[in-house]
Design a protein around this nucleic acid. Sequence first.
DNA 1: ATATAATATACGTTTTAACGTATAAACCGT
DNA 2: ACGGTTTATACGTTAAAACGTATATTATAT
Lengths: 83, 83
Amino acid sequence: MDQIARTPKQIGDAIRRQRRKLGLNQTSIGDKTKLRQATISAVESGASGTQLGTLCDILAALDLEFVIRPRTKAKPAEIEDIF
Amino acid sequence: MDQIARTPKQIGDAIRRQRRKLGLNQTSIGDKTKLRQATISAVESGASGTQLGTLCDILAALDLEFVIRPRTKAKPAEIEDIF
DNA sequence: ATATAATATACGTTTTAACGTATAAACCGT
DNA sequence: ACGGTTTATACGTTAAAACGTATATTATAT
């Protein structure tokens, strides 16, 4: 359930998955966070230039949080995009 | 040991802690990541505009990773900056 | 106290995120 | 197949990150 995310792409995927799990569309997240639907779209697709404040706002809107920890030897199942 | 981080400030603190734990200075992280020492400084102090790619590069250099998970009811001990 | 190392800050430049607005493209359900 | 919904993309604008370079400030050790 917890999702390892080492790249912007993985982070975007985790966000998209949770958003869908909550039955929300990008526009509604945009409303909650005062970001544009286009911005949510960019974050979910893994834009590496996404700003940290933007990301934290989206995580909050989805009731997600980060944990920072030493890298684990990847159990491949937990890492979705290998390349 | 794992660090909950919901804000840029908390993320910066976790990075600084790990960097020091590894006995490295900002310049050496800058060298590894091809970022300026000044940029590392900004990230560690919690600059909310830090870009995701920048952050991921620094985490990699420190052998850290993110986990994304549903927000927990905060055990206050795990959250360092309450305000 | 002083030298040295480490970190924070400054200034001008280039690059780019997020913006508003709009539309195009993809994805439903019926 | 079609209409509505959702997501991706476009364009010009504004704000700001990261840059190189340099220096000021703070911390650490002797």
